[in-house]
Every structure is written in C-alpha cells, then in structure tokens.
Amino acid sequence: MENQFQTKEFQTEDNKQLDQNAIAIANVSHRFGDKEVLKNISLSVKKREIIGLLGPSGAGKTTLIKIITGQLVPTSGSVKLAGCDMRSPSPAIYRRIGMMMDDCGLYERLSCYDNLRLYADLYRIDHDRVEEVLKWVGLYEARKCPAQKLSKGMRGRLMLARAVLHRPEFLFLDEPTSGLDPATTGHIHELIFGMCKEGTTVFLTTHNMTEAEKLCKHVALLNEGKIVEYGEPQEINRKYNHMNRLKIRLYSGKDLDLPNTEEAAEQVYEYLQTRQIETIHSTEPNLESVFLELTGQRLQE
C-alpha cells in the first residue's frame, strides 16, 4: 500500500497546480539517525479544507507537521505552503501560520491575557482582538490567571487562542483534543469549524477516528511513516465495505456474525422466512477498523 493515489496525483498535476494548493508535500522522507520516520510522503491540501492525519503514537504525525511548518528540514522531498518552499521559509510565511502543538510552551508565570498580548504586539494586532479571542475560547473570566494555574483543557484553549490570534491562513493542530474531556473537545471542534468557515486551511493530527470523521474533509492514515490510505472518511469507509458484517440474534439465543456476501444473504433470508430472527444489525467499517485491516494495529495504540 504505497502512496499510489498521491503519487499519481502529483504525476498528473503540473507544478503550477501544485503551487495553487494550500499545502503541497512531494515525496518527503525524513530520518532521525538510522531510523526512517517518514517514507516518501506525498499529499496535497486545498485551501479552506480541514485535513486530518490519523495514526497511532510514533507514526510520524508530529514530525510531518514540523516539516510542513519549517521547524524540521526533511531528509528528502519538498514541502510548499502557499507556494513558499518550507525547506528555507521566508519570515513572512510565519505570519500566515497558526500552530497549536503540545510542546509549544506558554509563559507559565504570565497571565492568559499577557501571553496573548505578547503575540498581539508581535503581530501588530489591536489589543481588542486579545479580549475577543479570550471570549471566543471561553477564557475571558480566567484572563488574569497565570498559565501555570490553568487546567489541561484551559491550556489547550489558550494555545488555540494564541494560534488563531492573528487570523492565520493555515492552522496546524497537533492532537488538539488529546486527553481533554468531551465538553472541551466539543468546544474546540466548534472553534475549528468556525476558523475553517472564515477561510482557514486546517491541518490536524489525531489518533481519534471519531474526531477525524466529524471534522475532516479528507483524512490520511499514517502508519510507520507511510500513508496507507487517503480520501474522504465516508469514501474510505465505503471502499472497505467488504468489512460490513451482519450481527444477528436468533430467538433460540444463538448469536450470528455473518459477512456481507451473497451466501450469507441467502442464509438471512431463510431465517427471516422462518421468523427465527430476534434482532439484526449491520456493522459498517469505520476509520478505526479500516486502519486495523490495513496495518494490523489500532489507532489508539
């Protein structure tokens, strides 16, 4: 399962079209010492799209984000962000990027307001925007609270606030809801949708397939540094529809787990005719089961 679809895409598009993509990644590989963490990754992202990079821990998601944002130079391949070569990014491109990564520190002793005000000053943004963003992420009441006293969820929201403060064209979110409670997660999802509606291209990594299905227009499944599948979540699920199964409980108490085949359909028809079926459910594939089939691993591993 090499990245045939992406490779094909790159072969058919000319360079001009590639530049028109918001993000264009071509044949990127990266090594840390002897370990190859990314293997010939190709991917293109259109403007105003939310793309999700799914994979278990250690798959190479964060490394890829660092390469796209110019924090790491790939061993080989090229990355363009709005046409800018991220192997040697111009300082101007950074004003168009917002980033929320787990290891992107906050000034722990400074208040939420001061943390954001610092960046507002650097981006030459009016201080009203700081208050607006604090309200937007629900931290206005805690604006005077030092970052070190915030809960994990609040820290996540503060980092998101900092990432969107300057209304970036590109938003990179590295596991934005990892370890957060469902309420905060839902809130962050709404904020991400809001940004996308305003025209931001969002690139997020996650190992939560529900999050990816809910948020992303396209997802790329990453395993051991390789993209093993790419497409719209529903499209991927349909592609693997052979994994669809029927779970049947008979009045006799017997449970049946049948594949989606003609033979099984005949069997079900027979049970229906003889009125033996108490309950019947179909289980469609989801990104988790697709990933499991493709890699033999679970996303959450």
Binding site: Y94, M99, G105, E108, Y119, Y123
Partner: peptide, 14 residues
C-alpha cells in the same frame, strides 16, 4: 526548554 523561543520566532522575532 519550554519552546517559547520557537513560538517567538513564529511571531517573526529574529
């Protein structure tokens, strides 16, 4: 250590 410097560079600080 806390990566605040990296974020400053993202804020166009040289």
């Amino acid at each position: 250590e806390k990566n605040t410097l990296r974020m400053l560079f993202f804020g166009s600080v040289k």
